[in-house]
Structure formats: structure tokens, C-alpha cells
Design a protein around this nucleic acid. Structure first.
Lengths: 181, 181
DNA sequence: AAGTTCTCTTTACATTTGTTAAGAAATCAA
DNA sequence: TTGATTTCTTAACAAATGTAAAGAGAACTT
């Protein structure tokens, strides 16, 4: 779930729960099985995993997006990553069972799922390509250009690991770009 | 198309063409629209794109796998990458139209497509994560461990760009690992 | 308001990687 | 086989990144 869903949510109000949580709330812990998907009404969320004791962020989500550990939610396997709020957030929380009910009640939505997954595939493919093709500086410049909202709302340390570099290195790149102006 | 398809191919012999091509044959050129998908009977194929004049490989395919520029084949947009044989190859070549005919004739296959795309999504997600989490040396060691067949059949220069490094750097890593034994 | 925590930057040094060039080794073609 | 091409390794130097530590600044808590 990454794109805004076309679901008529109010119709299914009895099947989901609206929750408000503070910043740094863990919605799903790495290694546990995902039983809920979330839809972000307000706030920012990141996916990260533990890497030799360090915290590596690999994806951000914002208002209007659905979040889950997609592979765990679908396959029932333990999640590769933790889902955690960055800021205080309002979320719709839906269990797997109830989401299935909703999806089956919305004609044509099940067919749409393939399209949603396809576009997420493209997104990760492009992220992988950017990673082997571009330098960290180029990836940072692309982030500023294409997704400036991330920069405004996410602490730089998380952005650094998302770019595959350390906060120190990101700081140097920012310094360099500023001097060049 | 990345997983071996469950299609009963002989039944549809009139809808595809079996071709034999030498090494370094371009099956699809970057920037052009993909009109054919291929199934590899024998041989090795890589996907690469032009990166500031340099050749960057980002995926390999072998016997029993289907190959296409998946996003171009599906959306009709120009391909991000070139598809090229690494070695001499025997291939089944299917047009988009005929593949649709075949898929529609095989009950349940259309539904399977979502699963195929889902698993390819997982694969790219894991490649992206490995890229921001692991060092080039760790990625090379994982390649030896998990996909040794690639190492046996693909020139090291292509593997280097697949790992996101230069052939020189890969050579140093190989030298270092050998000395450590 | 004061203290605490979190975030970001900077410095110095070590390590890794990129670049360029040269040559060895392997492969291919005539 | 022989010559040509491709592939791989090595060397030297430049550039980028990682690590560790210190401190400034911002944000949050009480």
C-alpha cells in the first residue's frame, strides 16, 4: 500500500480504527509479523532496519499514503523492518482481515492492487538504479529537486541513511553545495 | 517476467518464434519501446543503461527466465535500459499481442501475474536495501554465496557495475579476499 | 526559564573508492 | 597458429567517504 487508495473510507468506519500517536511510536517491530496496515491522515512515518547496531532508514511515507511492511503483511513472514512515526500522527489502522473485507466490497479494487504493486516495483527499481548509477551528491540533489517535501519534514540523519551515507558525509555535501552558490 | 512461467509453451507454438543469436546481440535498445518479451532457453542476458557514456549493468537473466523491459513492455513508454545477450543464446520471442493471447488462454495465469510482479518487487527492494546497508565487499561476498552461477557466467566488469563499483575496485576486493585465505 | 535531549556541523585522521595508464592474461577470429 | 580484441589486474595518485570526538544550535520537557 503506497498510493492513495480510492476506497470510500467512511462507508467502512466499523472496520478500522482511527488512532493518534506521538512521534517515535513504533507501529511494527522488525522481526514481528505485520497484522495491520495504516493509512496516514496526518504525520510522517519511516521504515528502517537495524544494521549492525545502526539505524538505517530506507523509506518515508506522508499524508494520504498507506503504509505496511508490504512483504510481511502479504506473506505472513517476519518483517524486515520497523515502522515508526517521525512526528506525531493520526492514522487509520486496519487489520488484514478487515482490509480484505473492504477490498472485496469495493468492486474493481482487487484488480487495482496489481497496478499499485507494479508502480511500487518501478519505484524501487529506480531507487536501485540511482544507487548504482549516481554519486551521493547527485542523489541528494535529486531529492531536493524531486521530493523537497521530504527534506522539510525529515531529520537529516534519516535522509543520510536513505541516501546510503553517514550524517557527516551529508553535512559535507550540503556545505559544499552551499559554498558553490 | 522474471520467474519461470507455468505456461504450456508447445500448445502456443504458432504464437512465438524461437531464435538463436550470437553474444552481444541487442534485443531492445534503450529509449525504444519494448514490443517483445523473451524467454531464455539457453544463454545469458543482461540489462544495462548508458550512464554518462559508461555502461552500467543492473540485472542478469539466465535459462528458464523471462526477460523484458518490464516497465516499457507494460506501459508502452521508452525503455530505461538496453537488453543484450552476454553469450550466444536461444530465445523464445513473443509479441505483446500474442503474449496477451497466451495469458488469456491459460486459466488463472492472469491472476498469477500479480504474484510474479510482487516477487520482483521484493527482489528489487532487497537489492536497494543491500545497496544502502552493505559495503561493496559485503555485496560481492553475498553474490558469491547466494548467486555463484552469476560469477561463473558473467564477465567481472559487468558484475562490478552491478555492485555499484568500478572494475578496478572489484579487482582490489577480490585480491584482498584471496590474500585473507 | 532551565535543563535535557536531539540534531547538525566541523575537524582530524584512516580507509575506501575513483581515475588513469600500463601491461598481463584470456579469448576470439582469420 | 597468429594477431587482434577483450578482459582482468596492478600501480600511483586524487578524491570521497567513514569514524570518532567535540561542540553549537534547536527543540522539547518539566
Amino acid at each position: 500500500m503506497t498510493t492513495p487508495s480510492p476506497i470510500n473510507w467512511p462507508k467502512y468506519q466499523h472496520l478500522y480504527e482511527e488512532i493518534s500517536v506521538p512521534a517515535k511510536t513504533v507501529l511494527l517491530e522488525e522481526g514481528k509479523t505485520s497484522r495491520y496496515a495504516y493509512y496516514i491522515v496526518e504525520g510522517a512515518v519511516r521504515l528502517w532496519f537495524n544494521n549492525k547496531g545502526k539505524d538505517t532508514t530506507f523509506q518515508f511515507f506522508f499524508e494520504g499514503e498507506g503504509v505496511s511492511s508490504i512483504e510481511s503483511f502479504r506473506t505472513g513472514q517476519p518483517s524486515m523492518c520497523t515502522i515508526e512515526t517521525i512526528s506525531a500522527a493520526r492514522l487509520l489502522k486496519v487489520s488484514k482481515e478487515n482490509l480484505d473485507l473492504i477490498i472485496d466490497s469495493e468492486p474493481g479494487f482487487r484488480a487495482n492492487l496489481e497496478g499499485i504493486i507494479f508502480h511500487r516495483l518501478l519505484r524501487y527499481t529506480k531507487m536501485f538504479i540511482a544507487q548504482i548509477r549516481d554519486t551521493p551528491q547527485e542523489r541528494y540533489e535529486a531529492l531536493i529537486r524531486d521530493q523537497p517535501h521530504i527534506l522539510q519534514r525529515v531529520p537529516l540523519q534519516y535522509i543520510a541513511s536513505y541516501l546510503g551515507i553517514t550524517p557527516v558525509s551529508l553535512s559535507r555535501i550540503r556545505n559544499k553545495l552551499q559554498r558553490e552558490k
